[in-house]
Amino acid sequence: MLFAQILVNGVLLGGLYGLMALGMALVWGVLNIVNLAHGALIMLGGYAVYFLFTGAGIDPFAALPMAMTGMFCFGYLLQRLLLNLIVRSALLNTLLISFGLDVVLTYVAQWAFTADFRAINPSYAGANITLAGITVPLARLAAFAVALLLAGLLWLLLNRTRLGRAIRATAQNLVAARLYGVEPRQLYAVTFGIGAALAGAAGGLYGVVAQITPYVGTSLTAKSFVIAIIGGLDNPLSVVLGGLVIGIAESAASLYLGPTYADVISFGLLVLILVARPARSLRMA
């Protein structure tokens, strides 16, 4: 029974982890940018939903589309005005510029929102259902469902729409975008915008199940990275699967070995997986 409970906890947590990594995997696979500011985007999404909820009284799940729209615009402009300038630079430079961005966003958040812990607490935050002796927190279940839904939508977008085909073609070859009549600069900005919108959604859900501070970004970036590597950049659904692996491994490790070992497990797993199969191609296309 304990094992089943761990499994459920891990799966629910893992779905959200998968959603966090989705945007990073997309941007990495298509734009070849390992975005170290991804966690900061998640954090901003969290604050957006938080203020929509506390300020305007909008239910966090209803606020998600609004936060995603805002984050899409923010991401679009960021890529269009800033990141497009260095997209063809060496990998190290894209790492560094996104780190600089992370520093700036973290600072701005701390200045605008203060360093206080914030949690999004709708009336149903503490509600549970119990099934065959296993407790399932409702908010987590809903967050898990939304994560799956968004991953599915991204899959549909990439595989069933003209825009998605253009994005996938661009992942292989920059010039290919032109064949679809899309200007690469535009396409890059749209792709990064989608990544930011997904990060925003993940942030909103994260705020419902945990607490947000301006500094939460760094560890979420690391986690997203681990999951993107494990899941690969091939397919949104396998990214979610990667999230589940990490979610389950962490919840098992923190129970059996103690919470301090959770990081040993997820990062140890990361190193092992990297070393075991380095040659695999990682692209969401």
Partner: peptide
């Protein structure tokens, strides 16, 4: 952060 961004560009 701004210095880093400008330096990379």
């Amino acid at each position: 952060g701004v210095v880093i961004i400008l330096a990379v560009i």
